[in-house]
């Protein structure tokens, strides 16, 4: 069990286990000391603990502090680890409803929506294991079709159905892996940030539009301390200062 150095009070710092640290964080939260709760939870995150409950509680502490951007960021991190957590989804929806920039996503086609629904229901690992399960099932059906001519017709139909689900699943996984790598999602954590027409300040480029804390964007590329972002469902894109946003994916 790894140890964490957590400053629980202003005068003492001690190495504690992750569960002890989280207990201390929860106690700070319960006592209304949200700043200290944030400090403890962030220490745990920095120590490499990736747990949906930790991110959920951290999101709550940020929300109570009025830091909407950080709250949405951590709710989304919790969502990646446990997309079926109803509490987290409710809090994420509430935090999003209070964000100033309402960025609606476009209504995509049926296949895209199916892929998105799968992504909203399964983690990447769960989707990967499900795809493997479908593959094993497909191979089993193939063996049945080879060895048992009586069941060949049924097996081939079953293989077609399983194969279709498998292809969609693989597309979904590939899409998630590619987007995580090429277009990672990010959240604006600064109160307000100007989106510039290029990677530089107002002395060089034009302010195209403003974004506010909690706005969820996609990072397209990096250039020094500037990040090029696009808005979901819009054609807008531009450059923002790197310290104004944080990536949802920690890996």
């Amino acid at each position: 069990m790894m140890g964490l150095l957590v400053t629980v009070s202003a005068v003492s710092a001690q190495a504690v286990s992750p569960t002890e640290a989280m207990t201390a964080g929860n106690q700070s939260y319960e006592a209304g000391n949200y700043a200290q709760a944030v400090e403890i939870y962030e220490t745990m995150v920095a120590a490499g603990i990736q747990d949906s409950t930790l991110y959920y509680n951290l999101g709550n502490a940020y929300f109570k502090q009025g830091q909407l951007g950080k709250a949405i960021l951590n709710y989304r991190r919790a969502y990646r680890l446990d997309p079926r957590d109803v509490d987290n989804n409710v809090n994420l929806a509430l935090a999003r409803s209070q964000a100033l920039d309402k960025l609606d996503t476009a209504n995509d086609g049926a296949v895209t929506n199916f892929v998105k629904a799968a992504e909203d229901w399964l983690t990447l690992d769960e989707a990967s294991m499900l795809a493997l399960g479908l593959w094993l099932l497909l191979c089993g059906l193939a063996i049945v079709a080879i060895l048992l001519p009586r069941f060949r017709q049924v097996s081939l139909w079953a293989m077609a159905v399983v194969g279709l689900f498998l292809i969609v699943g693989l597309i979904s996984i590939a899409n998630r892996l590619y987007n995580d790598y090429a277009y990672p999602p990010a959240v604006v954590v600064a109160e307000q940030v100007s989106v510039m027409s290029g990677p530089g300040g107002a002395d060089q480029y034009v302010v195209e539009f403003d974004l506010h804390t909690g706005a969820e964007v996609t990072q397209l590329e990096s250039h020094d301390n500037w990040r090029r972002v696009s808005l979901p469902g819009h054609d807008f894109q531009g450059w923002v200062s790197a310290d104004a946003l944080e990536l949802v994916n920690l890996n």
Binding site: M2, T23, Q50, T53, L54, L81, A95, D125, S128
Partner: peptide
């Protein structure tokens, strides 16, 4: 009034470290 749902209790085990995804 609407508010966020309360924090969760400490789970029995916490995922420590960045485990490599199965893929």
């Amino acid at each position: 009034a609407s508010d966020i749902r309360h924090i969760k209790p400490v789970p029995t085990s916490l995922n420590v470290g960045t485990a490599l995804s199965v893929a």
